[in-house]
Design a protein around this nucleic acid. Structure first.
Lengths: 184, 184, 184, 184
DNA sequence: GATGAATGAGCCTTCATTCAT
DNA sequence: AATGAATGAAGGCTCATTCAT
């Protein structure tokens, strides 16, 4: 029975999320530590580097998102599952606007290490894996899967940023799906 | 009678472009000045603030892009003109990968001032103005124009990032267009 | 449990005193830090701003002076107490020429914040409070107290600057007193 | 017949006066030049150094003051001439608040060179020369003339700063005179 | 493990001064 | 003589990181 940490790393990550959401990319570790109610030293005990903290935050957000999307019913038709991902993803983003925003912020700047970005793709691959399935079923236009995956995420982000309501989100999904699928 | 400019402001902007492309958002003014072959003081003579430099760089890129897109033949059908914008935009991005990347980098971070972002929209509005026309012609799905505009830019960026070749770019355009337009 | 202060804030104030005495108002924080045997960062850990450092220095000098003047015997006649203030003030200034000089230097420039100046008046008000008493006793000429207070300090400073010896200082006090009091 | 300067040094000095009055000791040469409607280079053509500019400004103010005090009627009794100096000095300071303030500002900081300060004393010595005469006439208390001279100037400055009106200024003169003179 | 004082490189910006025209 | 672009040494301040306790 080892003595548990007085402060969970999760506390620091939560603080980092809030601070970065507020201060943007320039947020300092000192401010994060203060927001977490932790000393400066403790932060660096738990994360050897600011980079490590950023990466951990990024991945924790991605994991959270992946959990929110969750498992899909394999008996449902492909489009229905795709739609389910779409809805859950949007719901998550609406429920976690800070996490959504910070995730994009970190991704767009170069703060997240390449490894973390790659790992992030890994995590959400369950969701985007549907595209693979769709491609194998011959449903998709003849373009690289990476491209179509990027498009999918872009549509989702745009839908969140635009603050679409449920009805609009449904239409927006059709815009995506109609684009991605061949018209045979 | 007065000493002529030894270095055009454009020299500094070009240097800034390269340095920011290499170092990311954290690029220092000192490094920019050095890359421009200019003293630190000179940089601040020409741009009173780092912010001003960033804004000027951003706007110069946007202007360059707008020039590359150029004027469209009003006699062409809407889709043809849209396609023309698509092709020229991609061509510009391919020819100016640094400018394309830096433009997005700046836009996504908070480095560019709100005014500059607004002015940037203004500059490229000629291109995105086509969407307005399409909407008025009843061609588009019932979603906010801002959303559709964002999608369009996202598709373009994704196409550039994915390094699509000419044939693929054509297909990618159809993906966008098929998505945006109603199916009646 | 935490690392104790290696250098007291007082060390930095002492260094600031010396450096400002030597370099004048333009003394740099870097030089102060070096004189205190401390890194530049440490200085700003202890004083968030150069302004704060200056203010703290100014007030510490004022406090030191107030301590040196100390409490007066309320049973003594007014003039005797006034003389006592005079003597102790001069003694302090002779013993602390740097502090005396720097205090004036800071006061005359705009380096000290308005609040610190006000607080400084507060601190030495015990001494100058005698003037109020004298005025209420009807001893003083009919001029604003602020004016008479300023004169008093000016005389003290002049006496210090001129390097008057004890005998001369006594005469100088009479010059002040004879001037301030009515001749009836 | 040499071509006259397009811009008199006096223009620059006037600008320097205003700018220093506004910005304090930290005023930059660039701002002075701009205020004088002159290029940066021209300023340094006329004054080889900022120090030289400051000194020239200081001395020009002192000269102006000396002119304002002017010549005294040698037939008047000493105290009357002293009073005349007092009145004229105050009148000048009231009429030239900027000059008065800047003169003190420069003097109190270390901006003015030692030579200029000395020259400044020289210039106003005509006025303070009265003290020599008074001392030789045995009117003054037994204290160094430098000290008494400093007191005199301090009283004048204090009177200006306190904004005394004419009646009060008369009383204030008596305070000075009663203090300085022996009571035999 | 937790703390926060200490560090010092680096950042943006200012400004007196020089110099080519 | 006048101009203003160019210079580069500071200056104040921030912050990721280290380390003694």
């Amino acid at each position: 029975m080892i003595r548990p940490l007085k402060h969970e790393p999760a506390d620091i990550l939560a603080a980092a999320l809030t601070v970065i959401y507020t201060d943007g990319v320039g947020a300092s570790t000192a401010k994060v530590a203060a927001a977490a109610g932790v000393s400066n030293g403790t932060l660096f005990n738990q994360f050897p580097t600011k980079q490590a903290l950023i990466d951990a935050l990024y991945l924790s957000i991605k994991t959270d998102l992946a959990d929110a999307v969750g498992a899909l019913d394999p008996d449902e038709p492909l489009k229905a599952r795709m739609r389910q991902v779409w809805d859950r993803w949007l719901a998550w983003a609406r429920a976690n606007p800070e996490a959504h925003a910070v995730s994009n912020l970190l991704h767009d700047s170069d703060l997240v290490s390449g490894e973390a970005v790659a790992a992030g793709y890994e995590i959400t691959s369950a969701a985007t894996g549907l595209l693979v399935e769709a491609q194998e079923a011959g449903l998709l236009v003849g373009l690289p899967l990476d491209y179509l995956g990027a498009l999918t995420v872009d549509h989702l982000d745009a839908a969140v940023s635009a603050g679409l309501d449920d009805r609009q989100a449904g239409v927006a999904f059709d815009v995506l799906w109609r684009g991605l699928t061949t018209t045979t």
